[in-house]
Design a protein around this nucleic acid. Sequence first.
DNA 1: TGCATTCCCTAGTTAATCGATAGGGTTTAA
DNA 2: TTAAACCCTATCGATTAACTAGGGAATGCA
Lengths: 139, 139
Amino acid sequence: MLSKRTKYGLKAITFIARQEDEQPVQIATISKSENISHKFLESILLSLRKAGFLGSKKGKGGGYYLLKDPKEVKMSDVIRILEGPIAMLPCVSLNFYEKCDDCPDETKCSVHSLMIEVRDSTLEVLRNKTLADLVKDTQ
Amino acid sequence: MLSKRTKYGLKAITFIARQEDEQPVQIATISKSENISHKFLESILLSLRKAGFLGSKKGKGGGYYLLKDPKEVKMSDVIRILEGPIAMLPCVSLNFYEKCDDCPDETKCSVHSLMIEVRDSTLEVLRNKTLADLVKDTQ
DNA sequence: TGCATTCCCTAGTTAATCGATAGGGTTTAA
DNA sequence: TTAAACCCTATCGATTAACTAGGGAATGCA
């Protein structure tokens, strides 16, 4: 299940990408428009900034703005920052791999091989979907 | 993230499907072989029995056995019983749909359309993968 | 019949996580 | 100078996951 953190984060970054001028967008603006708790959204945007997707400007008239071309922002990368692993099991995760306690041999685990297929098919979608697509799909 | 409940359930039903004779398999046998807590596994197998995948036999020499041809057991169906929705958001779930509190209009939600694509690609994999495949892949 | 074996069922418990809140501190434009 | 806005840490309530406990009921076999 996608966390609200990720859901809100995707909505927020899409909102920012929709701005035509280069003016920074304030938390309060997104918070009201997308019905997201102001403080919660604050911590989400902070993560996106630390990850290099967003820049910020302090003081009056400040806010958040995109650092990259929306066409270059892959959903797989954004989701890894907000949600963590894309795979449904740590033992099939590319970026967050962990061995299972119970499995002596991954190659003989039926769940393992199944979840690799699921992961690959999900990644295929997320790698080919960019922020620009999200903006376009909902205009 | 896949719950241990689902992971254990898939391992267990694969274990049962691997038996060549038609003899019922006991909880304790699976529990030891797959390193799963006996009582926890008991409740998982009970769910699979109630959902019609497994039958059971009480008393000495009893246990659980498959009710269907492994080729007919789709992973999508098993996972829906064990895990619940396959979609990552309730608002894109086919079998467990729920409207989002925050979204006034799903058609304009960027996350919604993205998650529909992810769901469809995951379903494609899970519908075409059967219990027989799992057994074969790990022999 | 008696008894061990096995499944059946309900309820409780512990720990982790999620979503949100609180309360400041710092920077900057006007 | 001041108010707007971001920056950061800590905390908290509710929910859920993953077991755990304990007994009941059916079955096969001596």
